[in-house]
Write a protein that binds this DNA or RNA. Structure first.
Length: 407
DNA sequence: AACCCTAACAACCGCCGTCTC
DNA sequence: CGAGACGGCGGTTGTTAGGGT
């Protein structure tokens, strides 16, 4: 492409904004809205380029921006999400209410990055320095698995962002589709082993939404462990990364199957995770008095040697469908669904194990039912490594007081 | 008091995807 | 359909304040 920088135009001011300029910009936007940023400066009487005005507005002047020190919980969220998403600041910012990507980015670069480095944690890989020297099978699997997780989460976030935009335009048609009852089922010829009906009631919630979470299950011990939990009647699979909420009227169903007679992961078995979701379920958008619906989802995952190798997830709502598939470790996705709620929007509301470290740090914690999420399931080293990895990061980040010499 | 260093943060730059004409 | 405009995004730089010498 190579366009000339807009501020190269003669006479346009650069550098810090003065209070007078802020006032002009604010006054103009309050009265007219921003509309076309390019035309705004001249109309508003500012010697700035439109882009500069836009940045000033979006990063600083917008009234819905929360400024000031980041809370411990916000820090933890940033660290955790960065471990999962990398430098995708806008994606991270979607999980921190009223925080903007630029601020998070700056905070990461000036505070968190250095803090992790001082603690011996690589801020890029989020692993202990000496841990990176290890190359045992378990470690490799952990890395591979986290990489898969990141790919999924990454793609899903991108899809979500687009879906939100799209669904805004279609909210009326969505409402008309409430109660749709198409039921997606797997075409797999695998033998169904387990089916769980996840309908746990949440007394604190007005919608009493049960939760089934694919990624938590994954993160918290792998599919096989999920299988065990399910078989033991554990119905509430919560997640620090993604959560699906379903109405109590239409409980989701998760079926876990194996393709070849069952057995233990890594021993020539290919467990299939079939998440058939719920039929005609509805999701309520937090903060909006509007109900959306989606029909069902199907998730097939092939797990090999503890690593998800091939999988497909399909979410449908009305006429729209989102499919994400993992084929030979390559993530593919179409993008036609409407799931305005978004799974990760509930991220911070889950009572995950992450809160454990918070409460240990003496902070206020809303940790209600951190019932180990399957600790008693006796997963192998791989699963324990995976879980301990996250706990280690968060515990390290919070165990030291902010006034510690380490900082 | 002057200088230097560093931390913190605002702002800019350039790339990219999407939209519009 | 293509070119340009627009806006989002992530990386980087510039500015300022505060502390140490």
């Amino acid at each position: 492409m190579g366009r000339l920088p807009c501020c190269d135009k003669l006479g346009l001011k650069k550098g810090p904004w003065t209070p007078e300029e802020d006032q002009k910009l604010l006054a103009y936007i309050e009265e007219h809205g921003h509309g076309c940023w390019r035309a705004l400066p001249s109309i508003a009487g500012l010697q700035r380029c439109g882009k500069s005005c836009r940045l000033r507005w979006t990063n600083y002047l917008r009234p819905d921006i929360k400024r000031g020190k980041f809370s411990l919980q916000e820090e933890q969220t940033i660290i955790q999400l960065h471990a999962l998403l990398g430098n995708r600041w806008s994606a991270i910012a979607t999980h921190l209410p009223k925080r903007i990507d630029n601020e998070i980015k700056n905070y990461w670069n000036t505070h968190l990055k250095k803090r992790l480095t001082k603690m011996g944690i690589d801020p890029i890989t989020h692993k202990h320095k000496n841990e990176t020297l290890l190359s045992s099978d378990g470690q490799s699997k952990t890395v591979a698995n986290l990489s898969h997780m990141a790919q999924w989460e990454s793609a899903r976030l991108e899809a979500e962002a687009r879906l939100v935009r799209e669904s805004k335009l279609r909210s009326h048609s969505i409402q008309n589709q409430l109660g749709c009852s198409t039921f997606a089922s797997s075409s797999s010829a695998s033998t169904s082993v387990l089916i769980v009906n996840s309908n746990k009631q949440d007394p604190s919630s007005t919608t009493s939404s049960p939760r089934v979470d694919v990624f938590k299950t994954w993160n918290n011990g792998g599919w096989l462990k999920c299988n065990e939990e399910v078989s033991n009647g554990v119905e509430d699979l919560e997640s620090p990364t993604s959560t699906l909420s379903f109405s109590e009227n239409a409980p989701p169903i998760m079926a876990i199957t194996t393709t070849s007679g069952g057995g233990v992961l890594g021993e020539n078995t290919m467990p299939m995770i079939e998440f058939v979701g719920c039929s005609g379920s509805s999701v309520k958008e937090e903060g909006e008095q509007e109900w959306k619906s989606y029909e069902s989802s199907t998730n097939l995952a092939e797990y090999k040697d503890g690593i998800m190798e091939n999988s497909m997830t399909t979410f449908t709502c009305g006429l729209h469908e989102l499919t994400m598939s993992m084929e030979n470790s390559t993530l593919r996705t179409n993008d036609h669904a409407i799931v305005e709620q978004g799974f990760t929007s509930l991220l911070l509301n889950t009572n995950s194990g992450d809160d454990r470290s918070l409460s240990e740090g003496g902070e206020d914690s809303n940790n209600h039912d951190d019932s180990d999420n399957g600790d008693g399931c006796g997963g192998g080293d791989f699963y324990e490594d995976n879980k301990n990895y996250w706990n280690n990061i968060l515990n390290l980040a919070t165990s030291l007081p902010s006034d510690s010499p380490m900082f």
